[in-house]
């Protein structure tokens, strides 16, 4: 379990990193927190010729408010920093609720927010959370910047719209609408394991107590984080009762997801978990929205 030989670069600025990427893009891998990449290299499943280590770029570590009332998070921000951030707790409670589910404290001390997004593991929490929140990502290639919505960014198993010579710089979370609340829940074999299924849910109530907006996303149910459009449509405009929520959860499990079987869970069990967890998360979000 030793990695194959590689060339190592540790740029001090984003510009230097981009230059290295421009030169080596197809042969290079970005090293952020290394919590997925390093094990993969030690198993020799990944054998990048060049490693570009982003850990010496302080400019990518920040959590700041946006004027609109949202949050911007630098790509190299550690999970742990975000987990302890009052700004995230206040403006992105879903993120705060999901973070403790990510692995273990040791891993969260090292792992980064941007790393999780760029790695695009369908079983990871952050991509699903970003999809639920309608987050967007700032990418840069040379001097060209572009913004991509989270739901468009993830295109398949460990695959995103990032070009080989492009860097993820920032995650931007939009402001929370009034009378909205969120919930996150997942089922893992042991605490800290990749979830068998996870759910992020958000409900915004209108003055009549109906769902003005619904957000529902899943992790570990396919090749990427999934936004449950059918379930959302089914619940939107209705009051969040036990029946409407159960109905929406059933639609989500049946129509919105295409889970795979693996050694830990069959397709049926995953769909069953998706329904159960969607029901629990939507119920909790609705309760919080009503209370809030």
């Amino acid at each position: 379990m030793k990695p194959a030989p590689f060339e190592y670069h540790a740029p001090a600025t984003v510009e230097q990193a981009l230059e290295l990427l421009a030169t080596h893009g197809y042969d290079a891998k970005i090293l952020a927190g290394g919590q997925s990449l390093i094990p993969t290299m030690n198993f020799r499943l990944a054998q990048p010729a060049i490693l570009i280590d982003m850990n010496n770029i302080p400019a990518l570590r920040y959590i700041e408010p946006t004027p609109a009332g949202g949050v911007r998070i630098g790509a190299m921000t550690r999970y742990q920093t975000a987990e302890r951030s009052p700004l995230i707790a206040e403006r992105a409670p879903l993120v705060a609720e999901a973070l403790p589910h990510i692995a273990h404290p040791q891993i969260r001390t090292r792992g980064t927010m941007g790393g999780a997004i760029a790695h695009a593991d369908p079983a990871a929490e952050l991509p699903a959370v970003c999809v639920a929140l309608g987050a967007r990502f700032k990418l840069r290639r040379g001097t060209q910047e572009r913004w991509i919505a989270a739901e468009d960014f993830f295109v398949g198993l460990f695959t995103t719209l990032l070009e080989p010579d492009e860097l993820l710089l920032e995650i931007e979370l939009p402001p929370l609408p009034a009378r909205s609340a969120w919930a996150f829940t997942e089922v893992a074999r042991r605490h800290g394991d990749y979830a068998l299924v996870g759910v992020a849910a958000g409900i915004t109530l209108d003055d009549a107590g109906n769902c003005a907006d619904v957000r529902l996303s899943f992790l570990s149910v396919g090749d990427r984080a999934v936004l449950a459009h059918n379930a959302i449509a089914a619940l939107k405009g209705h009051p969040p009762t036990a029946e409407t929520i159960a109905h929406a959860a059933a639609i989500a499990a049946a129509d919105d997801i295409a889970p795979n079987a693996d050694i830990h869970a069959s397709v049926d069990y995953r769909r069953h978990l998706a329904k159960t967890l969607a029901q629990r998360a939507l119920t909790q979000a609705a309760e919080r929205a009503s209370a809030g």
Partner: peptide
């Protein structure tokens, strides 16, 4: 056993 297997057996 496992949660997944218990689910299958219960079903």
């Amino acid at each position: 056993l496992s949660p997944g297997r218990l689910f299958e057996l219960a079903q």
